[in-house]
Simulated scan of single mutants.
Amino acid sequence: MRSVAQRARREPTQRRPRVASGRARPAEAGERGESASALPLSGANGLARLQGILPELRAAERRVAECLLAKPDDVVRISITELAERSQASEATVVRLSRKLGFSGFQELKIRIAQDLVAPVQQIHEDVLPTDDAATVRSKVFGATAAALASTEKVVDVRALEEAASAIHQATEVVFFAVGLSAWVAADAAQRFTKLGLATQALHDGHAQATKAALLRPGAVAVGVSHSGSTRETVRSLELARGCGATTICITSFGRSPITRFADIHLFTSARETAFRTEAMSSRVAQIAIVDTLFVLVSLKRYDQAVRNIARVREVNADKRF
């Protein structure tokens, strides 16, 4: 009969399969390993890198890569969550594949594939041509913005707007979380709601966001503004805020994206030109339109106070204008 030591030498230890946690993780929260196999950033474009590395990939990574190669036009229009669902893989696998290709994450991979697919001028605006004059450019940009507003009006849910307005009206404090180009939308929102007598602030630094979100209490409202819905800092802020019992609201363009998992109330925008730019131009206008709508709804709920506060603000700021 073999001894325990002999069996241990002859029978390699079997690794237990990793079990996914019950709670979904933010988009960029994938494993950071395997960076040694990452491709250099210079040289081949996104699609060429995918094709070249295909034979080396694990099964789940290969499914993601084949999904990207089969319909590259779609990748710039979907979130990391949607890609993971389509390829029957995890978000962590999508991030891991992106890093193997030499990118910091899925967002950078999307940008590189978009650059492969479109002419350089389309990265400025999808409908613009190099030969367009000022009048034509004006017409196309204004048209795209008007279309985004009209489309957003159709997709944003009235009940969600009412729920968000009620939560903000009753909140002990309201904090807006955003980074990048969405940060000025958050700053504008904080300025507006402050006029209504609400304790409001906007944070765009990742450390400050995490600190504040982790200290929120029930009764507070946290609003995350992210066009892609995959911005790590904003997603993490809502996750922390929700864990503390705060009501969470997201303003985003993607219905199935990481931020929606941690938001109690979803307010969606719609901007067609998202496909070919790292940050959609007209999405910011759509975000502002939602903020304006919420501001008016909350103002109506506290009408007398809103009228007094707005008049007082105008009075104290009168000497600041010529």
Rank of each mutant, 00 (worst) to 15 (best):
A150W: 08
L297W: 02
L149D: 01
T260Q: 10
V128H: 01
V118A: 08
R7I: 14
L181I: 07
S104R: 15
L83Q: 01
H227Q: 15
A5R: 15
S282M: 03
I124M: 09
S151A: 15
A189I: 01
L109G: 00
P218W: 11
R256T: 05
R7W: 08
T247G: 00
G224N: 04
A246Q: 00
L41V: 10
E31V: 05
A60M: 02
R159W: 02
L97T: 02
I111M: 00
V174H: 00
L240I: 08
V179Y: 02
A190W: 00
A44K: 06
S21Q: 14
L161V: 07
A89P: 01
E82F: 04
G197M: 04
L216P: 00
E173M: 12
V316W: 07
R284I: 01
F193W: 05
L196C: 09
T234I: 12
V285R: 02
S21F: 13
F142V: 15
P12I: 08
E56D: 14
R7S: 14
R49T: 08
A148E: 03
A160K: 01
E273K: 02
I251H: 01
V141L: 14
E126S: 11
K100V: 13
L101V: 13
G102R: 01
A199E: 10
G255Q: 14
R277D: 07
F177W: 01
E153T: 13
I168D: 04
D116R: 06
R96F: 06
A167Q: 04
T13Q: 15
S90F: 03
R314I: 06
P120T: 07
G105D: 15
V296N: 07
K195L: 14
A190P: 03
D188E: 14
V19D: 00
S182T: 07
S42Y: 07
P12N: 11
L39W: 12
S98G: 03
E11C: 11
N317I: 05
A178D: 06
G243S: 05
A222I: 03
R302A: 09
R112Q: 15
L39R: 13
V313K: 13
E91P: 01
I80Q: 06
P40I: 10
V235R: 04
L50D: 01
V95Q: 07
A147G: 07
F262N: 03
T172M: 12
S37I: 13
S139G: 08
S182P: 07
L240Y: 06
S182W: 03
R236G: 04
P72Q: 12
Q191D: 10
T248E: 05
T81I: 14
K320L: 15
P218M: 10
A89C: 12
R10V: 10
R232H: 07
I290P: 00
T278L: 14
R62G: 09
A20W: 07
A150N: 11
E273N: 08
N45S: 15
G52S: 13
V179C: 15
I290N: 02
G52E: 07
A275E: 12
R236W: 06
R242T: 04
A167N: 05
N317W: 09
H227L: 13
D188C: 11
V291K: 02
F177E: 02
